[in-house]
Amino acid sequence: MLLFSKIWRTGVVTEVLEAGDPASVEVGHALEQRIKRLLGRALAIRHVDAGSCNGCEIEIAGLTSPIYDMERFGLHFVASPRHADLLMVTGPVTRNMEIPLRRTYEATPAPKFVVAVGDCAKTCGVFKNGYGVVGPVERVIPVDVSIAGCPPEPSDILRGILQALDRAQAR
């Protein structure tokens, strides 16, 4: 009962998604119109940690929190790449994660696209030229959207995905 009285008092805390810094999102390849139409309202995301320090993961976890609430835009995380439309990749791709990342990409049914989250995924960040690192995600699988930041804010990540789907006006 204590739980439900707390729920009643707290209410809905989701914040409106505001327009942010456009430089943080880089759309590499614009998606085809039919893909935007197909995936625009219901997008399943599979997250792949390709050697990240987990800083981006904490921000990504914030996406499912009540404040950022990505579900209201029709986005949700799934457990298997077979169910996914979007691969969200974090981390510089380490040598051990190169093949799994590629296999994850192959396991995902078309039409699909890839979002590289964080500076490590975009340019290897602080791990650039490290001995255990293969390269940025672009080196392994084709990336459609890159979101800069170390780590990027959840609202930036959301904006990036929605921008790729042409739902920039979504609130």
């Binding site: 298997s80 790449p81 994660m97 093949i99 799994p100 994850t104 192959e106 049914p109």
Partner: peptide
Amino acid sequence: LAVRPADTWGCGRI
């Protein structure tokens, strides 16, 4: 219905 054969999803293992 487009069907593409692939390997069983095994969490990316070899």
